[in-house]
Design a protein around this nucleic acid. Structure first.
Lengths: 206, 206
DNA sequence: GCACTTCTGGATCGATCGGTCCGCAATTGG
DNA sequence: CCAATTGCGGACCGATCGATCCAGAAGTGC
């Protein structure tokens, strides 16, 4: 069902599917899921309705693929962060990555996941679930990494890893919102520096 | 054009306009502007299409009034914060207010402004502008208040008030996003406590 | 050149969107 | 009791949504 490179018989498609997906990702990033209409997407992708359905399935499938591309590209800083050697560096790479990703020149500002998730028709439920899952995944990665840091003595024993992960996510989300609102990268950079200056925060459950 | 109580001739309306607006506010809060369809709103408000248009004008006007009610009610913590005597207390009241407002029992989680703004086709531009203005207003209030604190020696002279305001807004926004994602109030409370523990953050422009 | 496969643009579908219109019900002042 | 005024429910409007269908163009293998 995926890419068959065995017997390319018939007329070859007249566009680059990867390139089209990139354009679609940007439109979703800019307008969210429901805010991105088919005509919007098709114009940006430079292809026709039929070609889109034949290549990507439908709008929801197109979004899934665009999200995968996003998670693997501009939003890959989560996975990159957790391999850092210390918890402080994990937080640093994560937050700096969030700032960079949310203010990439030539891309929409903010975070695709947030822009697309805070919506709410009934058909948006699937999408919301999809994005909630993705964010949970990131949150879990951070929590496990901080748990390890506690075990290794890199973080105070009383630190709650889940709470610390939520703390980092909270700041990251705030950055994304600010960036979407037009905050300049330098400002956000200074803010993350200030946050990281008081690392680790005292986060233990009572 | 407002409430005329002089000559109530004709059939009186069979519903409480204030109560209906409250219900509409909750629907917008839950689903955003475009995510809240007329049928959704009307069902929640318990009135007919005609009554809504006669009483509130149209969907956009209804949203404006719902937003005003929101800013004056559940989201009034911004105005309440800036009258506190010290910058630290301003930040404390603001962030605790953000947590409380975003996790009010019986209300949708998160922030109406964020849910409604981060979406949008072309018709959502007016709404986005409306909400951006409101957030700018809050930001400006905080900035001026922090400027005063710097002038009074309540904050270090090198502190940049605009940057500090953005810092507080960033955390507040992050809290709203987390709450919308289902984060428990207690967790968010602990996170704000940790943030406030390192007050004031070192925020000066280089 | 022919048979076959695949891609593509345009017309079209039913559903839903926000908004309007009309006829009737209900209430008040005389 | 009657005339005037206003509220209300339901039918209806054009526009737009995502999705489908079809005829024809553009390729490939024999």
């Amino acid at each position: 069902m995926a890419t068959q490179k065995s017997a390319p018989v018939g007329r070859p498609r007249g566009f680059d599917a990867d390139e089209a997906l990139e354009k679609a990702m940007r439109v979703f990033w800019q307008n969210g899921y429901e805010g991105a209409s088919l005509p919007d997407l098709l114009t940006a992708m430079g292809i026709s309705r039929t070609s889109m359905y034949a290549t990507f399935g439908n709008k929801e499938e197109l979004f899934r693929k665009a999200l995968a591309r996003y998670a693997d590209g501009p939003a890959s800083y989560g996975a990159e962060a957790v391999v850092e050697p210390t918890a402080r560096e994990v937080a640093t790479v994560f937050l700096h990555g969030a700032v960079r990703s949310a203010t990439l020149p030539g891309y929409p500002t903010g975070c695709l996941s947030l822009r697309a998730s805070l919506i709410g028709g009934e058909d948006g439920q699937i999408i919301r679930g999809l994005l909630a899952d993705w964010r949970d995944e990131t949150s879990t990665m951070l929590r496990k990494r901080f748990q390890r840091a506690v075990d290794e003595g890199d973080l105070p024993a009383e630190t709650d890893p889940a709470l610390l992960a939520r703390y980092v996510m909270t700041v990251g989300n705030g950055i994304a919102v600010q960036a979407a609102g037009g905050a300049p990268r330098d400002d956000l950079q200074l803010i993350t520096d200030a946050v990281l200056q008081s690392w680790p925060p005292a986060l233990a459950r009572p």
